[in-house]
Design a protein around this nucleic acid. Structure first.
Lengths: 336, 336
DNA sequence: AGCGCTTATGAAAACGATTACGTTGGCATT
DNA sequence: AATGCCAACGTAATCGTTTTCATAAGCGCT
């Protein structure tokens, strides 16, 4: 015996299928008494509406898709948590396709989602405008997360890298540091370049007489280590380092320790991301915390709005999620 | 203009819808020439079969669901990665519902998946047999991951906690440690109790004259810290500690450092899980590595087999994923 | 040429829901 | 008492596929 259909419920309750449908969704157009009889019958038969049949006629899947690159650890789990919670709050299901490292792969996944989702959350380094236009149906609500895409066609969410970087520089300046160096991320990386911008602008506006000092890393711990060594060799030495992300900051700390340079005594160090390890390194790392779950949640909310009333959300809408300074030992702030 | 349907393709190619369907799936029953014409037409119209319509008739969703508890960090991301990759290899989509902390919540999610998935991957602390039977249709292929459920009704995957624990104890014994203490996890936790079992049995079989020493933690770092202090107070002191997980081991290291006790000189320390931080603490933590991605992947494979040929996989099938000793500084092994 | 056999093709019946539309009956209004 | 209106309910069309069955055509064989 297979699962019960709406017909079975109708027969059981002695009404037509139309009444069952009405009673079960919204309940308008049926007497309270018949409604109750139908509810009872449905419960008795353990009736669950066939999702596919409903999708077919309503043209709604009540599902959203998330296309993600090869993410790791806390970032990934927090992102999914944020998305999942927001989706559930709207009664939407979440379909995930992750670990996409090349564009071809992502394209396939994108197409496979066609028709199975009401909207799409996309985070991928390969997403230039062409790629998206090529692989997305033009009328499918879509929200981009953290991409370098600047066109006005798609809605997007991004982290306030700029604001975070300004906070960090401001913090270091307020502690009396003068020669603040910045460790750049990989070229072309949007987060990296925005953080660098923030650094430059903060210096320019608050301390125009202080020099800009930059060395290039690639977000890895080793590159941070090497950059640390290069910074020590500078004459005169910087008295503070702001690394483009935490892993490079941690590499930097290792280089300084190896060289016997005291942190924060001789050099203050700051990072960006607040990875879990940041609080465990010695000295604990002052950094910028980003609420990743909020990033996912807000993206989901924006997508939900697009789905619920299409056309009501202007294409190209941007939202930002804030970043917040977390002061720990590595910047040498006086204990409050 | 809405998306093209099979009818549009049929008209475009000058054939019936039946031929289009045949040409596009498998391609048997049509001339090579007509087949080609149909393929062309489909491509020209950007035809994508309507998923819902197909589900309705074939009774297959080509989707599997994963119900997960509130997991964090590396564990979560690796698990999803494993599941996702294995699912994709089978052409299955993945629907995720995570962050379920209470049974009611999980039950709702479970029901919501009804009819939208061909199979289910379930990991939840609340999953006793009753709970599942109550909330799952009896004929839906299901694989449990890492649950304490021992009944023979459902297929399940689990980590070889026992084997891992034995390896760790064996390792410590081989280094000449005599008084090996174990830090227990939260009561009722399956992983925790299996690891404890492994510890007890390894001691019993390889060193029956050595004492069993246990203190109870709850898998958190703070509990590890407190347990570390209690272990130091013991007379005579243990010369090795095997913590039920890495976080407690790390807490333990902190307690020992604070007390000025040398690790591994005076006490060796071992953990379980190989969290990313394990290699960064000082001294780096000897621990047991579990291939979480493999856990997810194997679970998915088992589920896939169940879906493809139902009845061919005996209910109650168990599979294990191995655990492997990773030697670092904290256990004081001689450098090879 | 006529017979059967295979094979390509089309017509139409599912699948299970929603919903536009028609019908009925009860009630209030005139 | 006749009329109009509204709510409750049923009938049937519809969504886009797959698949069964019928039909026709091609082909080799006697």
């Amino acid at each position: 015996m297979s699962a019960a259909t709406i017909k079975d419920v109708a027969r059981e309750a002695g009404v037509s299928v139309a009444s069952v449908s009405r009673a079960l969704n919204g309940g308008r157009g049926v007497t309270a008494e018949t409604g109750q009889r139908i509810q009872d019958a449905a419960k008795r038969l353990r009736y669950v509406p066939h999702a596919a049949a409903r999708m077919l006629i309503t043209r709604r899947t009540n599902t959203v898709g998330a296309l993600l690159p090869d993410l790791h650890g806390e970032f990934f789990s927090e992102l999914i948590r944020g998305i999942d919670l927001a989706a559930r709050a709207r009664g939407l299901h979440l379909m995930v396709s992750s670990s996409h490292d090349d564009a071809a792969d992502a394209a396939i996944a994108l197409r496979a989602m066609q028709g199975r989702v009401d909207g799409l959350l996309v985070m991928t380094p390969h997403a230039d405008a062409d790629f998206l236009r090529q692989n997305l149906p033009q009328d499918l609500p879509t929200v981009l997360m953290n991409t370098r895409l600047t066109g006005a066609d798609y809605c997007a969410l991004s982290v306030d890298n700029d604001g975070g970087a300004r906070q960090m520089v401001g913090h270091l300046l307020s502690l009396g540091r003068r020669r603040i160096a910045f460790i750049q991320g990989p070229p072309g990386n949007r987060d990296a370049s925005e953080r660098e911008q923030g650094y430059r602008q903060a210096l320019a506006s608050h301390a125009p007489d202080h020099p800009e000092l930059t060395v290039r890393g690639d977000f890895t711990e080793e590159s941070g280590f090497r950059c640390g060594q290069r910074l020590l060799a500078m004459q005169p030495r910087p008295d503070a380092v702001f690394a483009g992300n935490d892993m490079m900051a941690i590499g930097c700390l290792a280089a300084f320790r190896q060289a016997g340079v005291d942190v924060p005594g001789e050099i203050a160090v700051g990072g960006f991301d607040d990875v879990p390890m940041a609080r465990y390194v010695i000295p604990a790392l002052t950094t910028i915390q980003v609420h990743i779950a909020e990033l996912g949640g807000q993206a989901m909310d924006l997508l939900g709005e697009q789905i619920d009333n299409p056309g009501n959300v202007p294409p190209g809408t941007r939202r930002h999620v804030g970043a917040e300074l977390v002061v720990r030992a590595s910047s040498g702030a006086p204990i409050a």
